[in-house]
Amino acid sequence: MKIMVAIKRVVDYAVKIRVKSDKTGVETNNVKMSMNPFCEIALEEALKIKESGFASEVVSVSMGPTQCVDTLRTSLAMGADRAIHVDTKEMLYPLSVAKLLKALVDVEKPGLLILGKQAIDDDCNQTGQMVAGLLNWPQGTFASKVVLDKEKHVATVDREVDGGIETVSIDLPAVLTTDLRLNQPRYATLPNIMKAKSKVIKKFTPQDLNVEIRSDLEVVEVTEPPKRKAGVLVSSVDELIDKLKNEARVI
């Protein structure tokens, strides 16, 4: 079986985000970009499944401008066998990404498509569900544990839902989206970085895949969250009670 993993290049999780002065989006010039943390988890899960002998190949896929190749290189250094880059400068929203992924699934025919549950830049949490719908595949979202049954071609997935864990059993091929506690991604070791140098990154354009990129969304404005007001130090319990009663009106 082949596993396809979707990888997104985002502003590094640890970078402090700055909104562009014209409020059209977030500043990405001269900002450290890295692999979306949930995508790292998705890739780690695919590599683990391959190591357990259930899959024969892991293919990582990324979409967007040329620099996505750097992120794909990281995925290869972590252990993916080969990579696909869909090269486009267009703004990609979840539905377009889902359509492109579907087209690639038609080409590659994987038995499992794994995605992060969401990207930390737009926090959409839509692509996995949309692509499952387009493919008409079953989906196991917010996975915190995945067990595959080789004989029956079934995946048992623990899902993190309100108030606890829901366990679902789905037939393969299927779509999985990964939650934070599924696994701990591995590091890129030097021997693997060396091996990754000779791995192939294949390039497609949306035209090659017969997908028209258009959006039903328009971003009106991006703004920073309101600044938190500074706290005040009160000098006595009486003053505190007075403030709670008369200013905050909570008691």
């Binding site: 590094d12 999780y13 640890a14 970078v15 450290k32 890295s34 692999m35 943390p37 990281t74 250094a77 972590m78 590091y187 890129a188 070791t189 030097l190 021997p191 970085i193 060396m194």
Partner: peptide
């Protein structure tokens, strides 16, 4: 840095190593 590390790995100065891929790492 990668080129330097890979050369050092080949020459045996380094036995193993990892390169951080993001700020968390």
């Amino acid at each position: 840095l990668e080129a330097f590390l890979l050369r050092s790995l080949e020459s045996g100065l380094i036995s193993d190593g990892v390169l951080a891929q993001d700020i968390q790492q």
